[in-house]
Design a protein around this nucleic acid. Structure first.
Length: 419
RNA sequence: GGAGAGAUGACCGAGAGGCUGAAGGUACCGGUUUGCUAAACCGGCAUACGUGGAAACGCGUAUCGAGGGUUCGAAUCCCUCUCUCUCCGCCA
């Protein structure tokens, strides 16, 4: 597959700005692929010969004739086959290891270059610019909604305890988001395990590249999910779906676990970067022809939540170099938090094209009866809670220090104001 | 956690070292025929990789849960693992 698209792959890597680093790797993959095919030919030739000889042995035995010479010949072939098979396994192992290290190729509308080329495609609402807004950790603590100290005590820094209306706020966000996505946007509600096996982590491409970023279970080859994308996308791993079931839209609430190794000191204050957080995730399984428009749809579903929460936001199209490893096209949704004076990423909506589908082997049977094809997968947060909470506590903060709760949320929370 | 049973094509289900890519049936597709909310008969009906070919298709290899082993030869024998079912234990 890579063999036929080698030029597209090189161009894609160049747009990400990683071609120079990965060029030798590609050369190696091409060489391994050639070697693989040569070895296959050699080994299959010998297997064909062995099969023929073994047939003759069987015939002679049935006829009561000795077959020692043929058995000798076959044994010799068998030894060669064993040697070539080992060689083949090594080559294929090396090749697939390389292929797992190669990122997805971004789509044409994605700008080249790094972060500096990210482009805001639209905005909604008006960010507050007054300097009188307190940061969310102050408000949250003062109103008794968040207990940072005890979270750190029982679990470590980056683990949050929500209390009273703060805890209820978390539950309200979950209900609001799930209700909107299932009722208004047609997603199937699911509830998934937060522990998954290695195959699932590989299927959505968290592995092998990002193993150090995740929590692994001791004594088992299992991990805590960094996002519900993992169980939701792996739900149909190794399956063939009828085209009539597409697009298939799934949503799930889940806690998400991230070690955030190497992120110490960067945006870590308060709720901005925590090790365990809650999120409602959106996943879509679609046909290749529709994935571009489906990304627009999914992104709008996520934006809808921000509008209901009356939080100003902007949508950014990530440049190639800033687009995630597995993604071909990503929109980031950021809401403005005036207390910390930052745009907070609350959702990342991506089209993975067939990148995950190849790894997870998810296909669909075309309605016209053709051969199964890889589907395209998309996902996005709809939304991640902590930064949304930070934004609510800051953007909706009143002069008297209380926090106004927008109407869509107050029905769930049972309160129109936090004070 | 302990004991036992099992895993074969879309599905059901045979096979118990070579003649099995795999009987038979169901479903599905094409055809014939009987004139009718259908039956009978005939034919077709896996995937992947490699290779040849413009293509139709041909050839080779692999695949009977997964991986290893025994053997000239494994769906069939041995080992490990995974999953399912039954019983016991434990538990929200």
């Amino acid at each position: 597959m890579v063999r036929e698209h080698i030029d597209a792959l090189r161009a894609g890597l160049r747009r990400r700005g990683v071609l120079d680093a990965l060029s030798p790797t590609i050369d190696r993959a091409v060489a391994l692929d050639r070697s693989r095919r040569e070895t296959i030919q050699a080994v299959e030739e010998r297997k064909a010969a062995r099969n023929a000889v073994s047939q003759q042995v069987g015939q002679r035995k049935r006829a009561g004739e000795p077959a020692d010479d043929l058995q000798q010949e076959s044994r010799a072939l068998g030894e060669e086959i064993a040697r070539l098979d080992r060689e083949l396994a090594e080559t294929e192992g090396a090749l697939s290891a390389i292929l797992l290290e190669l990122p997805n190729v971004t789509l044409d509308q994605v700008p080249e270059g790094g972060e500096e080329n990210n482009a805001v495609v639209r905005t909604w609402g008006i960010p507050r610019t007054d300097a009188r807004v307190a940061p969310h950790w102050d408000v949250g603590t003062r109103l008794g909604l968040i207990d940072f100290e005890r979270g750190a005590k029982i679990s470590g820094s980056g683990f949050i305890v929500f209390r009273k209306l703060g805890a209820r706020l978390v539950r309200s966000l979950m209900n609001l988001m799930l209700d909107v996505h299932t009722r208004d946007h047609g997603y199937e509600e699911t509830w998934v395990p937060v522990v998954v096996n290695r195959a699932s982590m590989t299927g959505t491409a968290q592995l092998p590249k990002f193993e150090e970023d995740m929590y692994a279970l001791k004594g088992e080859d299992a991990f805590l999910i960094p996002t519900a994308e993992v169980p939701l996308t792996n739900l149909y791993r190794d399956e063939v779906l009828p085209e009539s079931e597409l697009p298939k839209a799934l949503t799930a609430y889940s806690p998400c676990f991230r070690r955030e190794a190497g992120a110490a000191g960067k945006d870590t204050r308060g709720l901005l970067r925590v090790h365990e957080f809650d999120k409602v995730e959106l996943v879509r399984y679609v046909t290749p022809e529709t994935s571009a428009e489906q990304l627009e749809l999914l992104t709008d579903h996520a934006e809808k939540i921000l509008r209901l929460l009356e939080l100003p936001y902007r949508v950014t199209r990530l440049a190639s170099g800033d687009t995630g490893f597995a993604s071909a096209h990503t929109y980031d949704l950021e809401t403005y938090a005036p207390g910390v004076g930052k745009w907070l990423e609350v959702s990342s909506c991506s089209n993975f094209t067939d990148f995950q589908a190849r790894r997870a082997n998810i296909r669909y049977k075309p309605a016209d009866g053709g051969k199964p094809r890889f589907i395209h997968t998309l996902n996005g947060s709809g939304l991640a809670f902590p930064r949304v909470i930070a934004s609510i506590l800051e953007h909706h903060q009143q002069d008297d220090g209380s926090v106004r709760i927008p109407a869509a949320l107050s029905t769930y929370l049972g309160a129109e104001r936090l004070s």
